[in-house]
Amino acid sequence: MKLPALIRTALGGGLARGWRLGSRSPAGAVALAGGIGLIALLLVHAQGVPIAPPAATNALPRMPVVPRPPAQQPPVGLAADAYLDKTPPRETKGLDLVKLGWTYNCMECHKLFPAKWHYDRPMNEHKDLKLDHGNNRFCLNCHHPKNRNAFVDYDGAEIAQADVVQLCAKCHGPTYRDWQAGVHGRQNGHWDAKKGDKTKLRCIQCHDPHAPNFQAMKPQPALVYPPRAAHQPKAAGAAQH
């Protein structure tokens, strides 16, 4: 049900923006091309998978089912401690297309989009990104220009997605040192390595890399001292105090 709307947005938004911006800068043309490319990609992909019986209201085929749920995070802490609320402060959102069942392979789209430093006009995906990460104003400060599945090191080498901590460590040396020592960020499970393992959260499980400051959260209720005298049993001499 959501997919047609999505495509319409992608198409309409992409075209409209591309057109408008195109009048001002050559990059607009790229965006336009991108929009068309996206549709092409969708169609190509849809044909490449076994086609499910079409739904009554929807002519488009169902999306492929991927075994791994999108943007899954490893569990925090021990299974036995499930009664303790260990939700990390940040839920990774996952990309819209990924949530719909697309693979996590960024290059499926990005092989069509060349890397540009001043690429500040996302069309459908990444529109919700607000880059508020200090001096980092560009996607390619962190993302690899050639391989969007990876991050970029000082020398242009790739840092695998799983090694995101190495990326953050490029700038946040002291924090990285603390994290390594186990005193920055969350650790759960066993303090005693002889008795069992611990889980250690990586940077992006708590910090949104695009806006790493912690979001304010609602505090849990204060611990109140009960107004005991108020709900007293009828005890005759209980008001002794």
């Binding site: 990390p88 402060p89 759960n188 008795k195």
Partner: peptide, 12 residues
């Protein structure tokens, strides 16, 4: 050998 509960839940 486990961490205390208050540490387990601390979001930060």
């Amino acid at each position: 050998g486990k961490y205390p509960a208050c540490l387990e839940v601390c979001p930060t």
